[in-house]
Design a binder for these strands. Structure first.
Lengths: 220, 220
DNA sequence: GAAATAATTTAAGCATACTTAAAAATATTG
DNA sequence: CAATATTTTTAAGTATGCTTAAATTATTTC
């Protein structure tokens, strides 16, 4: 393929499929910050090249070729993230952007070598699962956003949204990291913010923040 | 800048300046495998942006801004090469191509971190010097191509041309690597090939091959 | 130093990936 | 279920970085 734009489209489609395995053009346009018209254009090309199934005004689905390609892009991205974080020592709020560029510029051979160096990691620094060389995804633990916990409950962080550098930088300052325990001390109804306790310290965090932090669900 | 093409132009110009600090369009076109017309186009843009000094039908020179940009690209490329070779374990004949892509996709912060991990290397796996963070070049030893040695002379390899993967793969099989000693046993006048001895084994190598292997010059 | 050769530039054109604006199809709402 | 709102597509246009062919300038050779 050898095309940054197309790789970004496939990756975005893959990461945002709904439970039926479909996605609408508008969502792609939003994620990539481009016009819907540009998306329509590209969808026709991706369809012609056999990566997606697309009929105008219908939802978009990946072909198995497209899915393989996209999954490999996600793999590249997340292996780079682990590498940058663990080996190079970059903070977790910087690795996403760097990996966004590196993922398009590395051979599969390089990615495989990095994976070996890292001893086959299963999750990236934000808790997202890393597809294996043969396309298998590791098991994902049951999880829900912090915002859905009740007063008095607590949860162990197992994933955070990786797409916003400022968000990650901010929650780091609160002491939030993977495996950290967070206690919901109070839910403020007025603005749906939360009073939480992390490592013995109390903080008030907004609803939006809480929606992007995911904790393990012990039982349903 | 944020532009792979322009970065490749600047890099190519920098690497191929003549002793007067100039280069002709045709050479750039050759190195980049594109038409001279395309080069003329781009030279106007690079000139408008202040990276080069260019008047039609005159030679091209880098401005100090262009030189800094280009030197930094070379730095990125060579640090990646060392990293891929030393840390990731890629063979020296594979690192150039991989670095050619990575050099456009990495932040200065990442490069600086890699440099620290590598303990500030001065030469890449092919013997080319690595510009430091503040733009200084390490000393280069006096050198000449193997093809210029006389019968009976010998030389220690300190640099090889890095641009051809097959060339590097081939000379590796002959046991040629940096710091290796090569003895010229015989110069064959008919085709200017050389009979050489490496690690006690004899080989016949072509003139073209010998022109791309550089040995240390002890005295002039 | 004029003629022949080589290098460079100009001109016209192409594919790509985007844009905005208008048209068409779909989804929502009263 | 018809009117309205939203989403998607089409149409026309742009910047970029290339191409080939022709014209121009520089260089080499005799």
């Amino acid at each position: 393929m050898q095309n940054i734009s197309k790789e970004d489209y496939l990756s975005t489609i893959f990461r945002n499929l709904n439970p039926e395995g479909k996605i609408k053009p508008g969502l792609i346009a939003g994620k990539l910050s481009i016009s819907s018209a540009a998306v329509t254009d590209m969808l026709r090309k991706l369809s012609a090249e056999g990566y997606i199934i697309y009929e105008r005004y219908k939802g978009i689905a990946l072909t198995s070729e497209g899915e393989n390609y996209a999954r490999n892009m996600v793999r590249r991205h997340r292996i780079w993230e682990v590498f940058l974080n663990k080996v190079v020592g970059m903070p977790w709020d910087k690795v996403h952007e760097e990996a966004n560029r590196l993922e398009h510029s590395s051979s599969d051979d390089l990615i495989n070598r990095l994976e070996v160096m890292l001893d086959f990691p299963e999750y990236d620094p934000h808790g997202d699962p890393i597809p294996s060389r043969d396309g298998k995804m590791p098991k994902i633990k049951r999880q829900k956003p912090l915002s859905e916990l009740e007063e008095g409950e607590s949860g162990r962080v197992i994933r955070v949204n990786d797409s916003d550098e400022n968000f990650l930088g901010y929650i780091s300052k609160l002491g939030i990291m993977l495996k950290e325990n967070i206690v919901i001390k109070k839910k403020i109804m007025f603005d749906e913010s939360l009073e939480v306790s992390i490592k013995g310290k109390s903080w008030n965090i907004s609803s939006k923040l809480a929606q992007n932090i995911f904790v393990e669900v012990k039982r349903d």
